[in-house]
């Protein structure tokens, strides 16, 4: 089972969070091929971004 150390997990999460949409798309495609603990982190961030986008476009937000 692959793992990140705590510090590495924090650093990778930050890099994913700070990625612009083009880089994020690249990383998502990359981790989908690569797998490993990075995939779980990027999928969590993807979900977060989708929720944020949904909220921004919801009637309440408008």
């Amino acid at each position: 089972m692959e793992a990140y150390s705590r510090q590495m997990a924090v650093a990778v999460r930050r890099a994913i969070r700070e990625a612009d949409s083009a880089r994020f798309a690249h990383l998502l495609a990359y981790y989908r091929q690569r797998g490993g603990p990075g995939l779980a982190l990027i999928e969590a961030e993807q979900l977060l971004r989708q929720q944020r986008q949904h909220l921004n476009h919801s009637p309440q937000a408008a």
């Binding site: 590495m8 650093a11 990383l27 690569r34 490993g36």
Partner: peptide, 13 residues
Amino acid sequence: TESQAVDQLTVVQ
């Protein structure tokens, strides 16, 4: 060697 996962972001980090 440190048993860390090797990927793009860990190498960059």
